[in-house]
Design a protein around this nucleic acid. Structure first.
Lengths: 139, 139
DNA sequence: AATTCAATGATACAATTAGTACAATATCAA
DNA sequence: TTGATATTGTACTAATTGTATCATTGAATT
């Protein structure tokens, strides 16, 4: 885990928006292995102060990188470079975690004394609730 | 009474809050029989030190598990895995606990990127496996 | 010059974790 | 048994982090 200081050079006259420059340079530093998966990035406020910009500008850059799955921002905790998604392994791992997760869920449900039928019913119910909650968000 | 060491692996970059990871992993270890009803869990301070985390974070995880009736925390005494089936626990609480468990499971499955259909399919599959394993035990 | 709109800034908020003091219980010696 | 001390969980607060929303600015367009 490298902890090299993130040293970004902004050009305020280039015409490129600050947030775009931040996005690009972080991608560059990642490409050049100056920063690595797992590394914590400066907080939005720390980087903003260093660059003499508003922290919302940094937050905007982070959000773009987050949406691109390049970094992972976590409210209250910080921002981290996403672990490499190993192209072919990730899908396998993803399924394995899912399978294990489900196994644990079922074991716990049985421990609580519920039957196979009740488990399926509860999964249906909660999936329905989940869907309704998601719909509400889109209103 | 098993006294196997509770060995939790935290991922500080996973996006999942620490307290959530603690909750999940304790449930896992319970589901996998690594810890059993009646077992005493590490004290909030001991586990916190082991995980290099503030003890309030552990306390928060314990409180969630306590509310789900999975563990029983007792001020001045310690924290224990609830005996099964919780004799004094009402049917209502049992269902609430089940509902909360299912909700967590579904949220985690979605976080892993699986669809409603895939979740239902996986639950079916693992229920089948569970049944087969149980049959084998009776041979 | 007026309008528009993207970029940035200001402010308030929410989530997570840490710090500190306290209350309940256990332990043990007198 | 009683009292002192240690241990354990609880409550409340503070600090740190990212998020959401709206206001301001400034350059491009008309």
């Amino acid at each position: 885990m490298s902890d090299k200081k993130l040293s970004l050079q902004l050009d305020f006259h280039s015409g490129l928006p600050i947030y775009t420059q931040i996005v690009n340079q972080i991608q560059n530093q990642l490409a050049n292995k100056i920063i690595q998966p797992g590394d914590q990035l400066p907080t939005v406020r720390a980087l903003a102060e260093e660059l003499r910009v508003n922290f919302n500008t940094v937050a905007r850059a982070y959000r773009i990188l987050d949406e691109a799955r390049i970094i992972s921002t976590q409210q209250g905790r910080g921002t981290y470079i996403t672990e490499i998604p190993p192209p072919e392994v990730s899908e396998k791992l993803r399924h394995e975690s899912f399978s294990a997760l489900t196994k644990r869920f079922i074991a716990e449900a049985f421990r609580l004394g519920f039957s196979e039928r009740e488990i399926r019913q509860m999964v249906r119910d909660r999936l329905q609730l989940h869907k309704e909650a998601a719909d509400k968000d889109n209103e």
